[in-house]
Amino acid sequence: MTSLKGEELKGYLGIDVGSVTTKVVLIDYDGSVLWNSYRRTMGQPIRALQSAFSSLKKDLGGVDIRGVGATGSGRKLADHIAGADRVKNEITAHAVSAIHLLPNVRTIVEIGGQDSKLILIRNGVVTDFSMNTVCAAGTGSFLEHQAARLGISIGELGSYALRSASPARIAGRCTVFAESDMIHKQQMGHNLEDIVAGLCDALARNYLNNLARGKDLSSPIIFQGGVAANPGIKAAFEREINKEFIIPGHYPIMGAIGAALLVRDTKDTRFKGLSVSEQRLYTSSFYCSDCPNTCGVIEINDSEKVIARWGDSCGKWANMEE
């Protein structure tokens, strides 16, 4: 990253508030990344977003932000806090950035903290997609949990897997069974490398069985999302379907890049400014007791004022004017 302190920098901001990590990128009009931040949400998306903004200000000084795009499961929250010009779902955002990077891409495999997606693209247009619906087996959280259980850091998982000569076969249908199967394999005397490699195989198989069933995974295939950091998973996928998986340089922030690419034609941005990081924002929630649905209503407050409310199914709190 080149430091351009002092000069007025122009750019477009992409925010991806995911379940496990929060990503913020600044790109220029051509889509090259000027600055990025990747940090854990730690269950506090507002705090994560604010600290990303303050480090952006610290790193680059004054920036002229021409547009803001928000994506990820917390996209609505990001919109309320920062003021986004476009709020897009993760599937579209990931597709946009992958197509921008590699115009002839045909398949995108994206595995994040708590969900995984498969996106098929033909001639630069999304033609089909699938997303895990009921099960988190085969996502980053699962890997992280297992790494912690084995006493190795998530970053080392890949190198362990690559050292294995004969991966243990681990039942990957369900995280709970995978875990008990792993314990069983440990007790049988398999070494750590083989078990970790087996875990990667199980994850790849689980993904292919759940999301890719009956779908044509043709090359070029781009592999992105946080789990792409693990070379063991890439190797497992390549073994399983015999095709090369391309990992882009910015694999963990591709969703945020996609969101930023989508706002490049913005005229007047709704962005509230980086000073948002200094606001005293906090959320509170209550259960509405007006009907048996008892929706949990969430409020974002700036000091004493309520900025936004959501979570109610009837819309009476969300639409209330303060």
């Binding site: 499961s73 599937i91 999304v126 033609t127 089909d128 997609f129 997303m131 619906t133 009921v134």
Partner: peptide, 18 residues
Amino acid sequence: EHVSEANIVTRLEAFVDL
């Protein structure tokens, strides 16, 4: 009864984009 609204909304939006 287990369906998640976030998942439904994301897939609907992506389908409409498509």
